[in-house]
């Protein structure tokens, strides 16, 4: 029986990157969509927050531009097993959209132009954990990557970062979105490898 395991006491590769389990690195940015690319001009874009009592608050592109944006550099992890490191975005922390909200609901359904939906606990969107982004790599977000505006929730699998974001609906109880109700995990933490329902 071997007493020492291979590599015991060896030096770590300083360039080694810690990835969530089952992921591999990509230098590109694969385009994965459940439907056709939505082409929404900024002047036609709007974002509506609908509370559980059906009160609505809407932001236009100009409204979005007037909110304080910040630069974000984050690793993103797709459930199809690619991870992309240090992706660079600019956008508004989700917290800004809830400053005047009287909602007491704990869950959010994010909606996209084109009909896509994905559900998230509100606490996963607040306290600087998620952004409504409008720039990628110092330019407008290409339509195929969700521009003009997408959600960015980097601590969850990337299907939660809805492309072509059009609004949030507050929910008092959790309800599944497009994929969560159909085989994929309801929460989607890549570090716990929550890919599929039951993981």
């Amino acid at each position: 029986m071997a007493i020492f395991t291979r590599g015991f006491g060896g030096r770590r590769d300083p360039d080694a990157v810690a990835l969530p389990p089952g992921q591999h690195l990509t230098e590109g940015f694969p385009v994965l969509s459940a439907g056709p690319t939505q082409y929404v001009e900024p002047e036609d874009w709007s974002f509506t927050l609908t509370t559980e009592t059906d009160e609505k608050q809407t932001w236009s592109w100009d409204d979005l531009m007037n909110l304080p944006s910040e630069d974000v550099e984050v690793d993103i992890h797709c459930v199809t097993r690619w991870s992309k490191l240090k992706s660079r975005w600019r956008g508004v922390p989700v917290d800004a959209f809830f400053e005047d909200s009287e909602s007491e609901a704990d869950y959010v359904m994010a909606h996209s132009y084109g009909g896509y939906t994905t559900n998230l606990p509100l606490e996963d969107l607040l306290d600087g954990k998620a952004w409504v982004v409008h720039e990628y790599d110092d330019g407008p977000i290409p339509a195929e990557h969700g521009g003009p505006v997408r959600l960015l929730v980097p601590h969850l699998y990337f299907w939660k970062s809805a492309k072509w974001l059009s609004g949030f609906t507050m929910m008092t109880g959790d309800e599944p979105g497009f994929w969560e109700g159909f085989g994929y995990h309801n929460y989607g933490d890549p570090w716990r490898e929550e890919r599929y329902a039951g993981d």
């Binding site: 994965l32 009909g115 994929w179 159909f182 994929y184």
Partner: peptide, 25 residues
Amino acid sequence: YLGAPGTVLRCPGCDHVLARLVQTP
């Protein structure tokens, strides 16, 4: 639409979702 992350079949006329298929382990 493949790997999206599941497979989605849509109507070419109106983009309505006709079918979805997801294979888990």
